[in-house]
């Protein structure tokens, strides 16, 4: 209350208005730069041209087919890595011995960039969905596993021994003590992984040539279809925004019951 600025009428209204103005300003600048000849149109087509092209794409079945391919790799890869990471994380996390024994290996494998696996994927699978999956799973697995391990480590020992004293078995404790503690961490992991998964799905398509939006972007680039290339890049950005928003809504839903919505651990 003390910091309320008395001259600012109502922030809730001005915020979105300014945001809309920001987008408008950006579009106007993008329109003006090529129109004024600051950058040639063959390198940077004006915003209106690109938006029209994007509109045309949205009406084409082929475009949606490509979106479907990309999203399949994204969703499948994400699902595999979440399941694998949760199962492994729970097993490793609930044993001190395993946690210590695997620490160095996890810390060694985690920073390996998943794009290093591109040649391997090409060699093993070629330009197919499996290549995308290999990269997506490798990249997102660590994000989720690490958060699950943090979450299991965060279990309150008092709560655990209370549950033990009431005769709850290993599985029941997993269900009623470990799982609820871990869930907020898991959601953080899923949020990070879902962004990374999209990056790797597109990368695989762009470089290996697995079917999907990334492959189409590669085609437009090599074919000199500049307007279409910009339109497709915009489309991938929009998919990214939708994924981010969707995951955030999911996170809020799942954690609604969580009395103290955990403030995020920095670092």
């Amino acid at each position: 209350m003390a910091s309320t600025n008395s001259r600012m009428p109502s922030r809730r209204v001005t915020g979105p208005l300014l945001g809309a103005a920001g987008i408008l300003l950006f579009l106007v600048a993008w329109e003006a730069v090529p129109r004024l000849g600051l950058v040639q149109e063959k390198f940077l087509p004006p915003a209106s041209t690109v938006l029209v092209s994007l509109g045309q794409y949205l009406g084409q079945g082929g475009f949606w087919h490509d979106v479907g391919e990309t999203m399949t790799a994204w969703a499948l890869g994400l699902a595999i890595s979440i399941v694998a990471a949760v199962v492994l994380g729970l097993i490793i996390g609930s044993s001190t011995f395993l946690r210590r024994a695997t620490h160095s290996t996890v810390e060694f494998l985690r920073p390996i960039p998943s794009v290093a696996l591109i040649p391997l994927a090409v060699l093993l699978f070629g330009a197919k969905l499996e290549s995308s999956l290999l990269l997506v799973v490798y990249a997102s697995f660590w994000q989720v596993l690490l958060q699950v391990l943090y979450g299991v480590a965060d279990v309150d020992p008092v709560a655990d021994s209370t549950a033990r004293s009431y005769g709850l078995g290993r599985l029941a404790r997993m269900r009623y003590v470990v799982w609820p503690t871990m869930l907020p961490y898991l959601m953080t992991g899923i949020r990070l992984a879902s962004a990374v998964a999209l990056i790797l799905a597109i990368t695989a398509e762009l470089i290996i040539g697995s079917p999907g939006l990334g492959y189409q972007i590669g085609l437009t680039q090599s074919g000199g279809a500049v307007v279409e290339m910009y339109a497709l890049i915009l489309a991938t950005g929009m998919i990214g925004v939708l994924i981010n928003v969707g995951v955030r809504i999911l996170e809020k839903r799942v954690l609604k019951w969580h009395a103290s919505v955990r403030s995020e651990v920095v670092v």
Binding site: V39, L206, I233
Partner: peptide, 15 residues
């Protein structure tokens, strides 16, 4: 932030 960064490679190659 949501744009997957690898798609910027063809764009910047062009520019």
């Amino acid at each position: 932030r949501a744009v997957p960064p690898p798609v910027l490679v063809p764009l910047l190659m062009l520019l």
